[in-house]
């Protein structure tokens, strides 16, 4: 969809030399800020920037097929690695009531002619999101199917009496900007390396199992590099994201790094 304002902005950015400089850079420090070190800023070159290099159009975003669930192989609106819980914006511990409310909320948000997502996503993406939400609702509201799904993800199935209140949105679809994110070691991440990091942070494997609801044995397999016993890539990636988060590592990079060692498996 053509957005003339965006195109105009793009050409303005190219043309406006000093007008493109960051404001924070040139503003006087406030009296209360004067002791703080100045923020690092960059001023643009006075000449117009060179024309944009023609880069090959590779998207580079991960799209892993979910295959097993209702044959949905297409991308669906948000981050492609959504679990059904993330598609609804609830946590895996959500009660049935919360799932119902979240379902109605999402349905309303992505229905045809919905106001809140107007102009944000395209019709095809909205359609895909609606399908996904529907699958999520059917699966997670049926106790048997939910249990099977949870087991497939390596989660400990939620007990029917578990009604812990959960804060609204899942944060999975957003980049994880944890202020305690630690840098990853160089090179592909091994299970042994993960274990070393975990132990250096004093985190027991059992703690990660309980908080993430991932079966303890899967976490052990990850640390032991027992590739033959690990679940398919799409689930494994989810485990690795959780594991990395629990240790304060940057989740996507950690998951990519570990999974790069698996070759063509999964």
């Amino acid at each position: 969809m053509v957005d003339p304002d965006s195109a105009r902005l793009a050409s303005e950015l190219a043309a406006h030399g000093t007008d493109a400089s960051p404001l924070e850079a040139v503003l006087d420090p406030l009296p209360e800020d004067r002791e703080r070190p100045p923020r690092l800023t960059v001023y643009p070159e006075p000449d117009a920037p060179p024309p944009l290099a023609r880069l090959e159009g590779e998207l580079g975003a991960e799209v892993e097929p979910f295959g097993a669930e209702a044959g949905l192989a297409d991308a669906f609106g948000a981050a492609p690695n959504d679990t059904l819980y993330e598609a609804l914006g609830v946590s895996p511990q959500a009660s049935k009531e919360q799932i119902e409310k979240a379902y109605r909320f999402c349905l309303d948000m992505y229905k045809e002619g919905a106001l809140a997502t107007y102009s944000l996503i395209e019709a095809g993406d909205a359609e895909a999101v609606r399908r996904r939400i529907s699958v999520a609702h059917e699966t997670l509201c049926d106790p048997r199917r939910r249990r099977e799904y949870d087991l497939g993800l390596g989660l400990v199935p939620t007990e029917p009496t578990d009604h812990r209140f959960l804060a609204g949105e899942s944060e999975r679809t957003a980049p994880s900007p944890s202020s305690t994110t630690a840098p990853l070691p160089e090179g592909p991440l091994s299970g042994a390396e993960l274990r070393r990091i975990r132990e250096s942070r004093g985190v027991a494997l059992r703690e990660i199992a309980v908080s993430s609801k991932i079966g303890l044995r899967f976490l052990e397999y990850i640390e032991e590099d027992r590739f033959a016993l690990l679940p398919p890539a799409v689930y494994l990636r989810g485990f690795l994201l959780e594991y990395a988060r629990a240790l304060g590592l940057e989740p996507r990079r950690a998951a990519d790094s570990y999974m790069s060692r698996l070759g063509s498996r999964g």
Partner: peptide, 13 residues
């Protein structure tokens, strides 16, 4: 509710 949905959409997309 639109306000809540805007917040949710901003995060997801």
């Amino acid at each position: 509710t639109v306000g809540h949905q805007l917040v949710s959409a901003c995060l997801r997309h």
